[in-house]
């Protein structure tokens, strides 16, 4: 058990090293940062001075090592565009994205599982058929279109909800939250639906097909034959057996909710890291891009680690091997 966790941690670390290499390689191969930082009226002396200051005169391995050890201490360098430490910018922006991802992830999982179970149990009912048909829309419409449609309906036509931004936020230490104000909460609704809709329909369809498979198993029939009520059979016996494959996909999807919040953040002008990344690309702000890459890979690795541990928690057969 502990051996298993240790092994996964070591593997995760290796993954991060490789991602770090890719992130670092961007500095070397995506244009010359010195060109970007100094204006048209630079002198050769300016260039030399900056190169030395940034450590660009050192060789590749030394630079990579310095990059990694700095990154480990939370130092990702200074943004070319804003001239401020990247870590500071990220900390400022991360709460917006994390709150958005948390809300839409929660929506996707809760609604996805509930609707999936419902459509599996009432397989032939009118409600289930309607939901299944509607879910096709969620799977097939692109995110930006859903966002624009929602803005048009709820912000432009009905005027109920704000169409952009986070609303009013409250500072709690280093964290800015939109959960504590009414306008913050209202502002979360449209973006989180937009971001979570695809994941929700995916989870729902997955839960449904897994659940229907599980409901055909002998142990479900045996549970019914023992006279257990439907509620116990469906939720205690069937749902738990449905979860293992669902967790795998959900884990990966949660990672992509954070990583690909870019589109939603752009549509709603949400001041998160996704929007930051888009702007960074536009200005070839490599330190920000590299830091973003590292941040996302840390999240993916962490989520995968959690998923593996959840397997162990759910399935006793894996614990004994």
């Amino acid at each position: 058990m502990i051996g298993f966790i240790l092994r996964r941690v070591v593997q995760s670390f290796l993954v991060l090293m490789v991602v770090g290499l890719v992130a670092f390689a961007m500095f070397r191969f995506v244009g010359d940062p010195v060109d970007n930082m100094l204006g048209q009226e630079r002198t050769q002396a300016d260039i030399e001075r900056l190169r030395e200051q940034l450590g660009l005169d050192q060789n590749f391995v030394v630079q990579y090592w310095r990059f990694l050890s700095n990154a480990l201490q939370g130092d990702f360098g200074i943004s070319y565009r804003q001239g401020r430490p990247v870590a500071e910018i990220l900390i400022e922006r991360a709460p917006a994205t994390l709150e958005l991802a948390a809300v839409s992830g929660f929506l996707a999982i809760a609604m996805g599982i509930a609707l999936g179970v419902f459509t599996a149990i009432r397989r032939n009912g009118l409600g289930a058929s309607t939901i299944m048909a509607a879910s096709l829309i969620g799977v097939s419409l692109p995110t930006f279109l859903i966002g624009i449609l929602l803005i048009y309906l709820f912000s432009v036509e009905l005027g109920w909800l704000p169409s952009f931004g986070r609303g009013e936020t409250v500072r709690l230490g280093g964290w800015t939250t939109g959960f504590l104000t009414q306008s913050g909460l209202l502002a979360l609704i449209l973006p989180s639906i937009t971001l979570g809709l695809y994941q929700m329909t995916l989870i729902m369809r997955l839960v449904r097909s897994e659940m229907m498979e599980v409901l055909r198993q002998d142990y479900i029939r045996f549970a019914r034959a023992r006279g257990l009520p439907d509620r116990v059979v469906n939720f205690r016996h069937a749902l738990k057996n449905t979860l293992v494959p669902v967790i795998t996909v959900t884990g990966l999807q949660l990672g992509s909710i954070i990583a690909f919040a870019i589109i939603t953040e752009t549509v709603f002008q949400w001041p998160g890291v996704g929007l930051l990344f888009i702007n960074a690309i536009a200005f070839v702000d490599i330190p920000v891009m590299a830091a973003y890459l590292m941040l996302i890979s840390v999240m993916f690795v962490a989520i995968n680690l959690i998923v593996d541990l959840l397997y162990l928690a759910i399935d006793p057969r894996l614990r004994t091997q």
């Binding site: 198993q217 002998d218 142990y219 029939r221 045996f222 549970a223 019914r224 034959a225 023992r226 006279g227 257990l228 009520p229 439907d230 205690r236 016996h237 738990k240 057996n241 759910i314 399935d315 006793p316 057969r317």
Partner: peptide, 23 residues
């Protein structure tokens, strides 16, 4: 359902699949 299990119960063919593996 009240009768099942209470008055009549059943033994299944394959003991490998008749028990819920997670409980």
């Amino acid at each position: 359902q009240a009768l099942r299990g209470a008055k009549i119960s059943m033994i299944f063919q394959d003991p490998l699949t008749a028990l819920n593996p997670l409980l």
